[in-house]
């Protein structure tokens, strides 16, 4: 899947709530968007509500990006997203491309 020749970047804004009700649809759109470019910029400034399912999608996206050697950055957080990422203590991990150290073992 990784196509090193292309260096496109794309911006994706999510405007709906990132809750379990939308999780399935958002998962495919996020993964699709990541597949279509090398740098995905995620704009979450309009996400009014986010729950654990939504949070997991962010984790998944970050990990997929890492796995495929791409970049996935959250360029704008809404208050809800920021609060959740903080609560789950993932701000540092999300900022850090070496997302999960023990992951290398796999």
């Amino acid at each position: 899947m990784t196509d090193k020749a292309r260096t496109s970047s794309q911006r994706l804004a999510i405007v709906e709530d990132m809750t379990i009700y939308n999780a399935a649809a958002q998962k495919s759109s996020l993964i699709e968007a990541l597949g279509a470019c090398d740098e995905l910029e995620l704009d979450l400034s309009a996400v009014a509500e986010i729950d654990t399912a939504g949070f997991q999608l962010l984790v998944l996206l970050k990990r997929e990006a890492l796995r495929r050697g791409k970049q996935a950055r959250i360029v704008a957080h809404s208050a809800a997203v920021r609060e959740l990422v903080d609560f789950y203590n993932m701000a540092a991990e999300f900022g850090d491309p070496m997302l999960i150290p023990a992951q290398e073992a796999r």
Binding site: A23, A24, K27, A53, Q56, L60, E64, Y88, M90, I100
Partner: peptide, 18 residues
């Protein structure tokens, strides 16, 4: 302190968003 562990999450294809 709280550490979130997402190791159990499989790769994107197998990951069930719910």
């Amino acid at each position: 302190r709280l550490e979130t562990i997402a190791d159990a999450m499989p790769a994107a294809d197998e990951m069930d968003p719910e």
